[in-house]
Design a protein around this nucleic acid. Sequence first.
RNA 1: GCGCCCGUAGCUCAACGGAUAGAGCAUUUGACUACGGAUCAAAAGGUUGUAGGUUCGAAUCCUAUCGGGCGCACCA
Length: 558
Amino acid sequence: MTPAELSATVLAAIRSTVDAGELALPADVLASLEVTVERPKNRDHGDYATNVALQLAKPAGRPPRAVAELIAPRLAEIAGIESADVAGPGFINVTLDVAVQGELARTIVLAGAEYGHTDTFAGQKINLEFISANPTGPIHIGGVRWAAVGDSLARILRASGASVTSEYYINDAGTQIDKFAASLYAAAQGKPAPEDGYVGEYIKEIADRIVGEHPDVTALPEGEQLEVFREEGLQLMTDQIKQSTEDFGTHFDVWFSEKSLHESGAVEKALDRLREQGHVFEKDGAVWLRTTDFGDDRDRVLVRSNGEKTYFASDAAYFLDKRDRGFSPAIYLLGADHHGYVGRLKAIVACAGADPDKDIEVLIGQFVKMLKDGEEVRMSKRAGNIITIDDVVEWIGVDAARYALVRQSTDSNITLDIDLLTRQSTDNPVYYIQYAHARMCSVRRNAAEMGIDKGPAEDFDPGLLRHEKENDLLGKLGEFPLVIAKAGELREAHRVARYLEELAGVYHRFYDECRILPKGDIELPPELTRARLWLAEATQTVIANGLELLGVSAPERM
RNA sequence: GCGCCCGUAGCUCAACGGAUAGAGCAUUUGACUACGGAUCAAAAGGUUGUAGGUUCGAAUCCUAUCGGGCGCACCA
């Protein structure tokens, strides 16, 4: 019995208690009631515990324990439930029959890669935009965090049934691109970089490549040269970013060009649509959007008095484009330096007649801080000390990098010690998880050599899995679908990572105490060996499925 | 000044408003005739920054305050 099935069972028991006239509950309370069951930390509290009686105490007008005393006996009568006891302030602790619990192993193995997937977000069409760093340089360590988190979030939401389009917004219009072109031009000419230009080593490399492919370029008039450097540089830089993210296991379904919004007239059209909604006005020769109507702290300029459209105008056009493509919500994953954008983005949505509470979500992630020799490293493109996504991959590999970045809540600043990273230290918990997976694979290899396998599904006897460590493991395996759904609902990918660490721990402890294969004078009933092979394979399945959600490999050997 | 995020073990971090706040690293001590020791067992480590409040129950919610990070453009 899975936790979800148990929740439904508890709900049914409550309904029948109400139907029998033993418990009075307002109809709306009963209709909207969500029963949660959880694995108690203390195993004296049964296999699962629910606090539903505590929640119902007030609407029922009865003490929580009294409510629990009504529900528990009905649960205890249900087939598969060994006992249901009232404890503490009114928790109901449920213990399942061993075989009912063990059945989960067969369920998981048969479901395979599908286990953990639910239809929680079925029907939702979600747009998930992340990184979207300017194509004027390689993705640095800050962007890498979003590459790991955003990509994992996309996978998690898909696993819970959502249709997700991952998207990278390329800021290929505007003055920063002019500066980029001018910087390339200067580098090619051997001149010092322009003021406020881009300086890194990569500028020289790109300039050299362009000159290599267009030997005549330096002979052209300056204006034409700038045009070549702009177009070619943009292309090369974008290609590099695409390559880097793909190498990192992060895939974008859509690469969206800001320039295309201008060229297609989408920005103009967006301005018209906002005008129709009545939130556009003119002042001091500029065109403004009255975002203060919707909680922004000041109104924003759409078209400057010199006639140039602002970045904000293309932001508005971009959101409308997403909306026209049918997404709700459009999720933006932004760095902490952009949190001031939340208000204005929401205001765009409201001004466009959409619902800022439903059609857009802005997730703010905190920065990655770096330590070297015990001191914080301040990156600056000017100082040429930027650490890129490719550097990180080269040092520790994709698995360790993605894991280190995704295992922590994006609400927290994280600190990465570069010395530790470059030393490829094995204290990264990702190895603990991968090792559990590799260990299971090794057991299966050994079993195969001994001519043993888990046997056909109909011969699996779930009632044999009665060891305490087996019970722990089964309980943890059962949580997986809920963890994924919760991580998706809260947009918190790190929950999956933390869960896998717990699961790997429970597996290692099971492995330590419960021998799977016979050896020498260790006697093991063949049917127990087979049952444990089912359990171990179920664990392997869940670890592999979980790592897949994080974009981390599940190696068969390490 | 206004706004967003954070403050939990020596360090890095967890904890749908739930029962005795948990892991890893580091420290101390055990288990190598190993189904892979990249493991396991155990010890030690905490007034959840501080002070109030809300309730059956607060690390979590509210208020104040202290400390840290990041923002407050006709820049992109």
